[in-house]
Nucleic acid binder design. Structure first.
Length: 573
RNA sequence: GGCCCGUUGGUCGAGUGGUUAAGACACCGGCCUUUCACGCCGGUAGCACGGGUUCGAAUCCCGUACGGGUCACCA
């Protein structure tokens, strides 16, 4: 028995709705599509004012709607309201190109992507490269590359362009400078000439007094004379915003609910650095406004940045977007994943290299801090787009569990075509020196059969090297478990008989090998574990492994007989 | 330390005042397989604590504890 979602019948005045949007709605709910001309086409600016009843799933953004059609029963709590339609939804992922795509960032991008696609909105990628010291050459390209690998695409960015560009902040410096100048002229910001040392000293003193370190406002009201003095000394000013005295900043977070900050807890903070580049909170607010971002979905480490950004919106009289702060992904110590943390593989590129399937990683990440309604856990990208609802974002941090990722990847590997599995495994065998880079057709076939043997139990591509090591060893060592198996009294008889049968085989193939084992059973009267395990252990050196006749076939007759001899010799002693 | 956020089994998590508190990973047991793996079935294990509110609280309120985030001319 599942609960009904909360539905509200509402009347709305709406803006044009795109057909694209309707196509993305649940097919089942689309049995009666409204006539096209009533609704306007995507991108049409003309305002259509109509009163129409909608059946609307109440979400934080009120964007998900379904058309009420004749005959649908009214539910309780009808509401009146003006709803902005889905085409208004614009979200962004704004990485700084300081390195490769991190798993946490990938998740931020992923949820923004799902949110946009679910609502028929626009997904934007903006590069925040204003910290020139930390920028990494090619960092932006790498970000995009692995986003693409994950199956995420975007509508506006540095590579595809868009109406709201440029999408690289260093190419927008004139914009920030213009707005900073405006704030300066309106007296909402001022120049601060303090040096790093002076600032640090100030903070030290505050700490010593047991206060919370924050900018004192020393240069808040400099006279023209003082300013000239500092300029004459050759000091370069930064620009600080005047933080209002006693103001409360409140926002209704999509995931956390109401969050409140007091302006008195903030010192006047820098909006433009000495070098003429904007600080993060200034640039992000301006860009989000200029790019008409409707929802900001980001990590919860940004919660305390939100009031700062609200100050910027306030100063310019701009509408504030909706914010949603997702919980962080944490390690086993429950700490935010830091890039230096080595307990967990952190970068998407590494997972790609290790032979994880992108759709598995996509699936896994999407379920980290978000969950769908039912019990299903394996979804395609399209399904995620279909069911994504930001209101179901988790409120508490998630520990990254590599084990479950492995399980999930295995699910996808089992379902995948062998060709794809070959692509993620063979290179590892070559790199490990197990296979030649230039295989003959026969060798290639052998390698493919080998991989196929392990498809069901493979967790990730690189694991193939470990799994198949018994095929590349000359000599095998028996561990305790193996010795236990081999020490049974029937073993020499079984092994000798099996060797005999193999030697007699005219054609050496899995079927014949299977028949040979059967023949051993007949001769020795041993069956089940007592039959198979000695053969398995003697030939593979493992108590667990792949399908035995196939493994023996791929090992080859010579090697198998050699191993049988070795085992028998060892038992003699 | 100030401010902010969080707390359901080892882990992910469902749950929005009445449930025997779902499901998944891991673990353990069984079945299937003449062995192994895959698969299937079952099991162990949880609402941080203390007060309220209520006929009734995992769920609402307050407090405590614990954990985390953030306090830059980084993003």
């Amino acid at each position: 028995m599942h609960r009904h979602p909360k539905w509200h019948l509402i009347s709305i005045k709406c803006a044009p709705i795109s057909l694209k949007f309707f196509k993305q709605m649940r097919p089942g709910s689309m049995s009666k599509q409204p006539p096209q001309k009533t609704w306007g086409l995507q991108g049409e600016k003309k305002e259509l004012r109509l009163r129409q009843s909608f059946f609307c799933k109440k979400t934080g953004n009120n964007r998900k709607m379904m058309i009420k059609y004749d005959g649908m029963k009214e539910r309780k709590s009808p509401k009146e309201g003006v709803i902005h339609m889905s085409t208004d939804i614009r979200v962004r992922y704004a990485p700084s190109p300081t390195g490769h795509l991190h798993i946490g960032n990938a998740r931020t991008a992923l949820f923004n992507y799902l949110f946009a696609r679910n609502a028929g909105g626009t997904f934007i990628i903006r590069i925040e490269d204003t910290d020139q010291k930390r920028n990494v050459e090619g960092g932006d390209k790498s970000q995009l590359k692995y986003l693409k690998w994950l199956g995420i695409d975007w509508d506006e960015s540095i590579d595809v362009g868009g109406e709201y560009g440029p999408y690289r902040q260093m190419e927008r410096l004139d914009i920030y400078q213009k707005y900073a100048k405006e704030l300066l002229e309106r007296g909402l910001a001022y120049k601060c000439y303090m040096t790093e040392e002076e600032l640090e000293k100030e903070r030290e003193e505050q700490r010593a007094r047991g206060e919370v370190p924050k900018y004192s406002g020393a240069h808040r009201n400099l006279t023209e004379e003082q300013r000239r003095q500092f300029e004459a000394e050759g000091r370069k000013p930064s620009i600080r915003i005047r933080v209002p005295d006693n103001k409360t900043y409140t926002f209704n977070d999509i995931v956390k609910g109401k969050i409140t900050f007091e302006s008195k807890d903030f010192g006047d903070w820098v909006i433009m650095k000495k070098d003429g580049t904007p600080t993060y909170n200034f640039a992000a607010a301006i860009d989000d406004h200029l790019m008409q971002i409707s929802h900001v979905l980001r990590g919860e480490d940004h919660i305390s940045n939100t009031p700062k950004q609200m100050m910027i919106y306030e100063a310019f009289g701009w509408d504030v977007p909706k914010f949603g702060h997702m919980t962080l992904i944490v390690n086993e110590e429950r700490k935010k994943l830091s890039k230096r943390d080595e307990s967990i593989i952190q970068f998407i590129e590494q997972y790609a290299d290790l032979g994880y399937l992108p759709e598995a990683l996509f699936n896994f990440i999407a379920l980290l801090g978000w969950s769908p309604v039912g019990e299903q856990e394996l979804f395609t990208r399209e399904e995620f787009i279909e069911i994504f609802d930001p209101n179901r974002l988790a409120t508490s941090p998630a520990v990254f569990d590599p084990n479950k990722l492995k399980w999930m990847n295995n699910q996808y590997i089992k379902a995948a075509d062998l060709d794809r599995i070959l692509d993620i495994t063979i290179p590892h065998l070559i790199k490990a020196g197990k296979l030649s880079e230039h295989m003959t057709e026969k060798e290639r076939k052998w390698a493919e059969d080998l991989v196929a043997l392990y498809q069901d139990q493979l967790s990730y591509g690189a694991e193939i090297v470990e799994l198949t090591k018994l095929f590349f060893k000359e000599e095998i060592e028996y561990d305790e478990e193996c010795m236990n198996v081999l020490s049974d009294e029937q073993v020499p008889d079984v092994l000798r008989t099996f060797r005999e049968k193999l030697e007699q085989l005219e054609t050496f193939n899995p079927d014949e090998i299977k028949a040979a084992i059967k023949a051993v059973q007949k001769d020795t009267k041993q069956r089940g574990k007592k039959l198979f395990m000695p053969i398995r252990v003697a030939t593979t050196g493992q108590t667990h492994g792949p399908e035995l006749p196939n493994a023996i076939y791929l090992l080859g007759r010579d090697k198998v007989i050699m191993r049988l001899n070795d085992a028998l010799n060892k038992l003699d002693r």
